[in-house]
C-alpha cells in the first residue's frame, strides 16, 4: 500500500525513537486486486456453461485445493506466528495480508461451491441412496461450520482490523485481539477443510 500518512506512534516501539504509525489512505482493497474475482468469476461462468466434467472438476478440485491450502497455511502457519509477533510487526503484516485475503478467500469459496454443486448434480452424487448419502449430508454440515466461522468471525475480524488500521490513532489492543481471534478461527477452518478432504476423497471413490 503506497498511500500513507503519519499519525500515532506505534506501540512496543523503542523508547526515545517511536516510529510514527503510517495510516493507509488509499482504497481498502487495491483496485488491481479486483481483477482476481473478475477473471475467476468469468472462468466459473464459462465452466458452468461448458458443463463438462473436466471443466467443473478443474474448477471445484483446483480452486477447492487452493482454498484448503490457504486455510491450512493460514490456520497452522500464519495464525500461530501472528499470535507471537510484536504488535508493530503484526500491524505491518495485517496491513498487507488483510486486503488480499478479503478478496481471495470469498472468490475461492464461491467458485468451489458453485462448481461443486453442478459437478455433484452431474455426477449424481446428490441422488445417491443412503447410507452413502450420509457422506453428502456430512459435507453440507462441514460447509455450514466453515461458512459460519468465515461469515461470523474470519471475514468480519479481517475487515475490522483493516478499518481500525485506517484510523489516525488505531486501537492496537483491539487489533491484537482481533488478529489472535483470526488466527484461532483460521485453525478451525483448517481442521474442517481436512475433514472435507476425507469426505470428498471418499465420495470420489464410490
Amino acid at each position: 500500500m503506497s498511500d500513507t500518512a503519519m499519525a500515532a506512534p506505534m506501540p512496543g516501539a523503542a523508547a526515545g525513537s517511536p516510529p510514527a504509525y503510517e495510516v493507509p489512505t488509499g482504497p481498502l482493497v487495491p483496485t488491481k486486486l479486483l481483477a482476481i474475482p473478475a477473471v475467476s468469476l468469468a472462468i466459473l461462468i464459462a465452466g458452468i456453461l461448458a458443463n463438462t466434467e473436466w471443466a467443473l472438476g478443474f474448477l471445484h478440485v483446483g480452486f477447492g485445493a487452493v482454498w484448503t491450502g490457504f486455510d491450512l497455511f493460514a490456520g497452522f502457519m500464519v495464525g500461530p506466528i501472528l499470535k507471537r509477533l510484536d504488535p508493530p510487526m503484526r500491524v505491518a503484516f495485517m496491513k498487507r495480508y488483510g486486503p488480499k485475503m478479503l478478496v481471495v478467500m470469498p472468490t475461492l469459496a464461491t467458485i468451489t461451491l458453485a462448481a461443486g454443486f453442478q459437478l455433484a448434480r452431474k455426477a449424481e452424487f446428490l441422488t445417491m441412496p443412503y447410507p452413502r448419502h450420509w457422506w453428502l449430508v456430512a459435507s453440507f454440515a462441514l460447509v455450514g461450520v466453515m461458512a459460519t466461522s468465515a461469515f461470523a468471525i474470519l471475514l468480519p475480524s479481517n475487515l475490522q482490523v483493516l478499518m481500525e488500521l485506517r484510523k489516525p490513532a488505531p486501537n492496537f489492543a483491539l487489533v491484537g485481539k482481533l488478529s489472535a481471534r483470526y488466527g484461532t478461527f483460521a485453525a478451525v477452518a483448517g481442521v474442517t477443510q481436512l475433514l472435507t478432504l476425507i469426505i470428498m476423497t471418499r465420495l470420489a471413490s464410490f
Binding site: 446428490l126 441422488t127 453428502l136 453440507f140 454440515a141 455450514g144 461458512a147 459460519t148 461469515f151
Partner: peptide, 18 residues
C-alpha cells in the same frame, strides 16, 4: 449470523432428502 445458520440448516435438510 443466526439467520445465515438457519439458511445453512435449510439447505442441508434439502440435501439430505435428495
Amino acid at each position: 449470523v443466526a439467520s445465515v445458520v438457519f439458511v445453512i440448516a435449510t439447505v442441508a435438510t434439502l440435501a439430505s432428502y435428495m
